[in-house]
Design a protein around this nucleic acid. Structure first.
Lengths: 197, 197
DNA sequence: CGGTTCCTTGAGGATGATCAACGAGGGTGG
DNA sequence: CCACCCTCGTTGATCATCCTCAAGGAACCG
């Protein structure tokens, strides 16, 4: 869980409602607010000229996003849009930084959060470079599975093939063909188009 | 500049000498120390089965490296080796974490440092996905230039083509051919094999 | 010099991207 | 209930591009 809600409200945070697919902030925009999701979901991603996309992160209930630029006076490296109807708390940058200053526990929390982000981004970069679609997809599946409850059974993957393509920087067709191969080799299971891993 | 040297010594940091190309820590190793370079240089990178490499970061005099895993009890996502004869300060993990706890200014410093790392890793991922070797290379050159002194003139790039290949996840030959194109289109200048940008 | 390391070029091959077309399922409104 | 239209998944054919492999050349250093 991120910053305590009462605390945020005390400091003047305001809840804002967003429809699905609304832009929360855009690439290269100056960062002025801290955002924390009350309910809903947000996707941070980049897209290039040819419409190819890359998902930098997904964020859900209780999570904050887009914090790093607040600390370093930088613009957003990616765009953020809601993937569902969502309610998101906004707190101005200076208030946010003051909170960080005044509550050591929160500062500590962000330090750990950031350490995690760096670690996972390092892993992602490593896998992407690995080239082979197969590796990229498997490592995407792993990173997803790591975040979900532990289980011995295969779990259903709650993403469309297009979404997986955007996560891995591949094309839909490539994702589909790779999954067929993985299925044939028993690395994943596909039942009625649904993917289990 | 990172943590004050006197402070590090007071807390029991020890300087260790490394020859060029010595391994400081290896991928998947448990993180037990904070490292700060007294002099020399370190490269953090991954390599895959086929010998293809990806450089996660380069660190020089005064800089620390490999800190994130210390905070989150994770193994190193990459390998670190010296790229020159180097002297590096080592401080045990618990001492390091205690310093962080006791000196708010240092904690703050790491928060900003991490914010920067996340930002630059996000940018890197975005560029890598962009596929086209040309973009990857140009954005690598930009990120290098950003770190160096400001100048209107083209600056020499202090990396071999192989090194640039490892940074961008491309092959040497591709790097060479791309540079020829960039040169023809006046995006870079190549004088006597040396690259200026 | 002689030996490295780095740079360069060409030819050929592998593979993911593209393009085009179609099927299946789930709503929705008439 | 059916027709229509979404979105999502799928397949095949072709293309473009980067990788591979192989072979030299250039530059630098002891």
């Amino acid at each position: 869980m991120e910053i305590d809600l009462d605390l945020l409200y005390t400091w003047g945070a305001v809840a804002k409602k967003y429809k699905k697919n609304e832009v929360v902030f855009d690439e290269d925009e100056v960062a002025n607010f801290y955002y924390q999701i009350l309910n809903g979901g947000v996707r941070m991603y980049n897209s290039n000229e040819e419409g190819k996309e890359f998902t930098q992160g997904l964020f859900y209930n209780g999570e904050g996003f887009g914090e790093p630029p607040l600390f370093i006076d930088e613009t957003y490296p990616s765009k953020a849009i809601t993937i569902q109807d969502s309610t998101i708390l906004k707190l101005s940058k200076d208030k946010f930084l003051k909170i960080i200053d005044e509550y050591p526990a929160i500062q500590k929390y962000f330090l750990n959060l950031f350490a995690n982000k760096i670690h996972s981004k390092a892993k992602t970069a490593k896998e992407i470079i690995n080239q082979k679609p197969e590796f990229r997809i498997i490592s995407f599946l792993n990173s997803f599975k790591r975040k979900s409850e532990y289980t011995n059974d295969k779990i259903p993957i709650p993403f469309t093939r297009q979404e997986i393509a955007d996560f891995t920087g591949l094309r839909v067709e490539t994702v589909i063909r790779t999954f067929s191969k993985l299925n044939a080799r028993k690395k994943v299971e596909i039942i009625n188009h649904k993917i289990y891993y």
